[in-house]
């Protein structure tokens, strides 16, 4: 059910990006989509009652030198967290570029309304 909520948030972002007329609101819509996907990825790795996947000295098995399997079975999946961190970094770059283009466009046209920014046709 929670996954469906993620998808709902994604669709809200998509609606905002495609329907709104203001450039800044379009950017906000795209970011909502981004965060919906991040939330989805984080929830993929969730385990009810799990522990954080940080390995300390106690979690090592003294005999084999590996991490104890009981710890592995109790901890949440760390891979989606790495994915989300990377996705956040990428979205930061994309967001800053979008915002700077919005500002530049505002300087040129004097408006954020995309219905008035229409020099390209066809």
């Amino acid at each position: 059910m929670l996954y469906a909520m993620c998808f709902f948030l994604f669709v809200i972002g998509l609606y905002c990006a495609l329907v709104k007329k203001n450039m800044v609101k379009i950017v906000i819509g795209i970011m909502i989509m981004e965060y919906a996907v991040d939330l989805f990825l984080i929830m993929l790795g969730y385990r009810a009652g799990g522990v954080a996947p940080i390995v300390g000295k106690d979690e090592f098995d003294a005999v084999s030198g590996m991490v104890k399997s009981s710890f592995i079975n109790a901890s949440v999946d760390p891979l989606p967290q790495a994915l989300v961190l990377t996705a956040i970094v990428i979205s930061l770059g994309s967001l800053s570029l979008m915002i700077s283009i919005c500002i530049r466009t505002y300087e040129k046209y004097g408006t954020f309304d995309i219905t008035e920014i229409r020099r390209l046709k066809g």
């Binding site: 800053s96 700077s100 500002i103 530049r104």
Partner: peptide, 12 residues
């Protein structure tokens, strides 16, 4: 990024 965006604002 923050510096450049603030330069934009001052310029405009």
């Amino acid at each position: 990024i923050v510096l450049i965006l603030s330069v934009f604002r001052c310029d405009s």
